[in-house]
């Protein structure tokens, strides 16, 4: 199953934390430029998987390989979950993007036309020009998200990991960010692995889905994975994949009738598997 050109290969990855299995034999592969959703409810192991790919968390068994066989370093861009930028830092959005380019180098940066152009281009790509010169800690959540995406992408990584980038965004910003990420992944040829607890905003954009439940995963195209039989087997008990008002909702069997009725009454109601 190993394609030489894969941007990311995860093979039977197992992680235990505090004596508890958090990831159980997770396997999947991402091709260059692929846009992949990492979907699972709270505590299913999304953050742990992303941190394992970065090398922050050690695998107990299994293997994770990047395009060139190395781990982390220059080839991976990362936007952590719940990152709070300190309003006390005297950094403009522009400075944060520049730190994404060469922040790990020693010494102060020498003024360079090329560097400034790269930063400017990236700010333009994520639509952050309007607030490029403002203190980054004072920007709104959605604006910070764009700046952090630019920070992660400016080094032209082959793989971009985003942990819950859509949390705290309103419907319109969510759609904008998803479209933006999808476009950038194509333009820059970077595979994107994006975690979310709600798959709906991603369904039109995803090439592939990795669905996590209690640390186990199934991967594939969304229409192959998000099915009653497949997810029931993953969860180990019966769940229903319900489609209502254009939304996909995964519910445990006994709750599904109630949920179906509730969603029919109130279309913005969402539900998840217990």
């Amino acid at each position: 199953m190993s394609t030489v050109a894969a941007a990311l290969t995860v093979e039977r990855a197992c992680v235990e934390l505090g004596g508890r299995p958090i990831l159980r034999e997770v396997s999947f592969q991402l091709a260059p430029g692929e846009f992949c959703g990492l979907i699972g409810s709270n505590g299913s192991g999304k953050t742990t998987l992303l941190r394992a790919i970065l090398g922050f968390v050690r695998l107990d068994s299994g293997q994770i390989r990047l395009a060139d066989g190395t781990t982390a370093g220059r080839l991976v861009g990362y936007v952590p979950q719940k990152i709070a930028l300190d309003p006390g830092l005297p950094l403009r959005a522009r400075d944060v993007v520049a730190l994404g380019l060469d922040g790990a180098r020693l010494g102060p940066a020498l003024p360079s036309r090329r560097r400034a152009e790269q930063v400017e281009q990236m700010l333009h790509a994520v639509g952050a020009e309007a607030f490029a010169d403002q203190r980054v800690g004072l920007l709104s959540g959605g604006q910070q998200q764009r700046v952090l995406v630019a920070h992660a992408l400016v080094r032209r990584p082959r793989l971009l990991l985003l942990d819950e980038p859509l949390a705290n965004l309103d419907v319109r910003s969510t759609a904008e960010i998803v479209a933006l990420l999808r476009r950038l992944s194509r333009e820059y040829g970077a595979a994107v692995l994006l975690s979310a607890h709600d798959m709906n905003p991603l369904l039109p954009a995803m090439d592939r889905i990795v669905y996590l439940a209690h640390g186990s995963a199934v991967a594939g195209k969304a229409e192959e994975v998000v099915r009653t039989e497949v997810l029931s087997e993953l969860y180990g008990y019966h769940v229903d994949v319900v489609r209502v008002h254009g939304r996909v909702v995964v519910v445990a069997a006994e709750a599904s009738d109630q949920i179906r009725a509730a969603v029919a009454r109130d279309p913005v109601h969402t539900a998840s598997v217990p």
Binding site: F56, I83, L85, D86, L99
Partner: peptide
């Protein structure tokens, strides 16, 4: 800015 961003580089 964020220790995890630094580690990721």
């Amino acid at each position: 800015l964020a220790a995890d961003l630094a580690r990721a580089q």
